[in-house]
Design a protein around this nucleic acid. Structure first.
Lengths: 218, 218
DNA sequence: TTGCCGCATTGATCTGGATCAAATCCGAAG
DNA sequence: CTTCGGATTTGATCCAGATCAATGCGGCAA
C-alpha cells in the first residue's frame, strides 16, 4: 500500500499496520462515481492516485464543485448518515476505502489519528473560507488566476512542482468550481494567454508570468 | 459559567469542572474586535451570548463575511500560527476564552472532547460547502431566502424558535455574507415584503410564507 | 426641539458575466 | 484515413446585479 500522504505521517509502525489491515484498496475508472450526495455514507476514502471531483447539485441541475481531491486527500470526513456531496473520478483513480465501522473504531482507539484527521478537517475549513471569498468577491479573471496558483501549489506539495499546472478536469468542472459559465472560463483563459500571463498546453497551463498572477491573487 | 452548548454536551462532570477552570469568561461591546485575520492566534473562543461577525478582507477592502457565530459556536478552531479571519462583536457579546496552551493540553488529555470538536469542525465544513453552493450558483432572491431560513433554523436549535427571525447584523454584513451589494439586499427585502413572503420588522424579519421560502431554498 | 450621522431605501444607469448560437478542435472508433 | 461526438472556442446579444446618486428615517446629543 502506498503510504497515506496526509493522515498517517505521524503514526507509529504498528498503527500503520493496523490501518493497512482495515484499508480496502479500490480503483475507479474515469467518470465512475465514488458516492452520491444524499446516499448512505458507508465509507471514508483516502485518495492514493488520480483526481476526484466533489460537487453538490440543486434540484434544477445547477452544480457547484466544492473541491478537487488529489492524492493524499480524505473524502467523507463530514460524515453523518448521508454524504453531503457527490464524488466521481476524473481519469483513473485509486483510493483506500475504510468502512464506517472500521473508521469509527480506529478513531476511537487512536487519538493520534483523530488529532491528525481534525487538523486535516480544520485545514479544509480554512480552504473553504478562502473559496467563499473567491466566490463572493472576486472577478472572473481573479478567480481563474487563484485557481491556477492554488492547483500549482497543491501539486507542488505533493512533490510535483512545475511551471506547468496539470488540469485533468474539464472547463465545465472549472466553471462550476469558480461559480462561472464555461464560456467565461474559456474566454478568460484565452485572454490570459494573449497577455502572455499563461500558455495553454494540452492537459494544462504553463505559468508564464507568476509575478503578475501573484499580484492579482494578492 | 453557562454550560457550553455545543461542545460539552458529552463531557463528564469532572471534565466539565476542568474546563471551567481553564475558561476565561470575557465580554465585548458592540463593534469590539475579538481577533484580526493574520494576527497571532492566542485564544480559542466559545460564544456564550450575542452574535459575532467573522470575515476576511482583500487588500483593496473587499470583504467576505464567512459566518455569523451564535451562542454555542466555537471560534478559532482552524488555528495555525495566525487567525484565518477577523471576528468582531455585533451588539454585546460574552465568550469563554481558552489560551492556546490550555486548549492544546485539554485536547491532548481528553479524546472525548477532541471527538466533539472534530464533529463540530466537520459540521462547519458541511455548512461551508452549502455556502459555496449559495455563493456560486444561487440568485440574489434565493441567497436571501436561504439566509433567512438558515438563521431561523439556527435560532430554533438554540431554543428560540420563532416566525420572527432576529437579524442583529447590518444590511452591509448580510450583503458581504451573500456576495451581494447592500442595495441588492435592500431591494430584495423590499420585493419579498411586497410579495407578502416576509414582513420587515425592527431588528429582523417575520416569515409570512414559509412554504414558498422552503420551495425556493429547495 | 433641532441637527447630525449612520444606516437603509429607492431610482437611474451601466456592465461583467450570462445566455444564445455557431464554428472549430480533437481523440477514439471503425 | 475518415467519421463522429463531446469539449472548447469564439461571436452577438441580453440582463441580473453593480454602480452612481439622492433621499428617507430614526436615535441620540446638545
Amino acid at each position: 500500500m502506498v503510504r497515506l500522504v496526509s493522515v498517517c505521517a505521524s503514526l507509529t509502525d504498528d498503527e500503520l499496520a493496523l490501518l493497512e489491515q482495515l484499508a480496502m484498496p479500490t480503483h475507479f475508472a474515469s467518470g465512475d462515481t465514488l458516492f452520491t450526495q444524499g446516499s448512505e455514507a458507508h465509507c471514508v476514502y483516502n485518495v492514493t492516485a488520480g483526481v476526484v471531483r466533489l460537487y453538490k447539485l440543486l434540484s434544477d441541475g445547477r452544480r457547484q464543485v466544492v473541491g478537487f481531491a488529489l492524492p493524499g486527500d480524505f473524502l467523507g470526513l463530514a460524515m453523518r448518515d448521508a454524504y453531503g456531496f457527490s464524488a466521481d473520478a476524473i481519469g483513473d483513480v485509486a483510493v483506500c476505502a475504510f468502512s464506517r465501522a472500521a473508521y469509527t473504531a480506529l478513531v476511537d482507539a487512536k487519538p493520534h489519528l483523530l488529532k491528525r484527521l481534525h487538523e486535516f478537517a480544520t485545514h479544509e475549513l480554512t480552504l473553504a473560507h478562502e473559496q467563499m471569498m473567491l466566490l463572493g468577491r472576486r472577478t472572473a479573471e481573479e478567480k481563474l488566476i487563484c485557481f491556477l496558483l492554488g492547483m500549482q501549489q497543491r501539486w507542488a506539495r505533493l512533490g510535483k512542482p512545475s511551471v506547468t499546472v496539470q488540469l485533468p478536469m474539464t472547463r465545465q468542472d472549472i466553471a462550476d468550481f469558480l461559480g462561472l459559465t464555461i464560456e467565461t472560463v474559456s474566454r478568460t483563459f484565452t485572454r490570459l494567454a494573449k497577455d502572455k500571463t499563461i500558455l495553454i498546453v494540452p492537459g494544462g497551463v504553463r505559468v508564464m508570468n507568476p509575478e503578475r498572477m501573484h499580484a492579482v491573487a494578492a
